[in-house]
Design a protein around this nucleic acid. Structure first.
Lengths: 335, 335
DNA sequence: GATTTATGCGTGAACGGTAACGCATTAAGG
DNA sequence: CCTTAATGCGTTACCGTTCACGCATAAATC
């Protein structure tokens, strides 16, 4: 491996000059630059990243702006786990993460988190811009590279988006539902929370495009009720033994699983999203037939790696990363 | 972050002494050692890996011993791709891979590859010990740490195994097959190559334990025939319109997919393993309903990472890594 | 008591790259 | 012609660890 000294010797200059030329800083003449570039090319010189990072004592402070891990049935613990895993791998190389959590359903909390993130000095940022209106100031004012995770905003100058293909998730759910419901007569039921959300809309649209029968939408998530009993009551009218199947577009399939268990309706097919702990139990018990995941853990993992590569290794056009849907069922439930 | 200098200062010695004590080399007294350990503990000192690796110019040469990428319908290209990806991430830190490929169905080729690997100087080794008898000499003689991928041998002193849970893969296939065959009358057909193999046996056993009807085993892979026509002829007797479904336990489902396409039998359910290119085409065309994968790419990726962590970062009991089965179908086919 | 051997520890030069600093040389300005 | 500024480049001190070398001091030997 050629070092900067080899380049310097071949170009007939000192290492300092090579360094300045390669970083286009300070002063140098055009023809020495040319000699240096020629030497770099001839020797195939690649800077040693160990030495570089050691020398500049570069630390890569990343700010992460996502909801509280407990929110959405602890969904947000999953990308966080992935980020922590990536951190473990990269911390020897000076990467550190600082989390700024917020309550995604509370405007004040969002603004507060954004405010703190704005004040935090960092080299890069990973966030879920769940509320465009609250976050946009951040990625306009803050002069650091950032990438979006889970939710995208196209017309921002994010350097990348790591997320899911929610429509194909819906189509996949439809395929599985068709299979599960073979021999069942009645229509399908789609359960969705009231909150407007791109992914949920897409999951519904995808499902509708793929099913072999009518699908009735009920937009009342459990959050709309004070207690579980009230929620159960609302289901009484729409869920019955002959139903083709139930499709829950967010992470709250486990509530429905509990309902089906209590009412002895386990034969009704149930498909949900996101492998949070409660859903895992539902899958194990057999109340949930399939859980689709969009690899949130992997999203977190890749987001950190991507940003690290851009900041520390100088990669510049990473491209978006759309992770495929995964099918989880009792037989392939990971530990 | 505390450095070795801080430790030295607090312990009242020089950095050289700290270094010798922490590495238990050279000469030092018991009580200075104690002071140094106390200082390390108090400051929470962790050696800077950048500096360490730079200083010792450590390179981590890994030897990889797997079949030719093209074998088994190009199955082996998948773990290789994962390893190459991990390499890309780790090459800045001095990791290099050297592949030793062999023809897994040819004894001479195996021995030849093992011989070359034995001669190769490396710091660690990743291999698929597909033929215990040919490989055992290697992991007895060679004095480097090694990990097994894809296939395990328990009573070897491998530092880890990265692989699949093939039985649960079979059980999962059974579940999907039951769903696909709802409403179909006839029995299932299991297609397996003649070669004896732990994973294949397990996949069959798992499938048998999960299906809701009889499953007939036909042990003649396409390798047993001179040409495709001959293979097709052998299928003519056993595949027919009313068949419950076909389960191919290795990567050659695409051959069956071609057969079903040609004979206009696309309604017969077909499940296979491994997302090799040809199977991908079969899924896209609709001839293959489900492909199960055991994440071979991920296996390769993780194997390299694991070995790197053990060798360079001094992790010592990594534990085995059993990757879950994944379900691939037309709707979630990754790009 | 002088000489040898053993023991504990400090020193300093790497590893490869970075970046502040400052010395020559040349060009511009009076 | 002298001063001043601008330009190009070399020097040097790091970053945190490793490790060979060698200097003290103490212990063992005669």
């Amino acid at each position: 491996m050629a070092t900067i000294k080899d380049v310097a010797k071949l170009a007939g200059v000192s290492t300092g000059t090579v360094d300045r030329i390669l970083h286009k800083r300070g002063r140098f003449s055009a023809d020495t630059a040319e000699r240096v570039y020629a030497a770099v090319k001839e020797l195939g010189y690649e800077p040693n990243l160990l030495a570089r990072n050691l020398s500049i004592s570069q630390t890569c402070r990343l700010a992460v702006l996502i909801p509280y891990p407990e929110q959405d049935s602890s969904y947000w613990a999953l990308p966080k786990a992935g980020m922590d895993e990536a951190l473990a791998a990269l911390s020897p190389y000076g990467v550190s993460l600082e989390y700024f959590h917020f309550d995604r359903y509370d405007r004040a909390s969002c603004r507060e988190a954004v405010k703190r993130a704005l004040e935090f000095e960092c080299d890069g940022m990973i966030m879920s811009p769940l509320r465009n209106e609250d976050f946009s100031c951040l990625f306009r004012e803050k002069q650091v590279p950032f990438i979006f995770i889970d939710t995208d905003i196209r017309d921002s100058d994010r350097i990348a988006y790591v997320g899911q293909d929610s429509r194909s998730g819906g189509v996949l759910a439809a395929k599985l539902m068709n299979l599960l419901a073979a021999g069942r007569e009645d229509h399908f039921l789609i359960l969705a929370p009231e909150t407007e959300n791109y992914h949920l809309t897409e999951r519904i649209a995808g499902f509708r495009s793929g099913v072999d029968r009518e699908a009735v939408l009920l937009t009342t998530g459990i959050e709309a009720f004070h207690d579980r009993g009230e929620f159960y009551a609302s289901l009484d009218g729409v869920i019955h033994e002959g139903l083709g199947g139930i499709y829950v577009v967010d992470a709250s399939a486990h509530y429905v699983a509990d309902y089906l268990t209590e009412k002895d309706l386990l034969s009704v097919p149930l498909i949900g999203f996101d492998l949070v702990d409660e859903n895992r139990k539902g899958v194990l018990s057999g109340a949930i037939d399939f859980i689709l995941t969009q690899q949130p853990r992997e999203q977190g993992f890749q987001a950190v790696r991507l940003l690290y590569r851009c900041l520390m290794l100088g990669e510049n056009n990473p491209g978006d990363l759309i992770l495929a849907s995964q099918i989880i069922t009792k037989e392939n439930l990971p530990d």
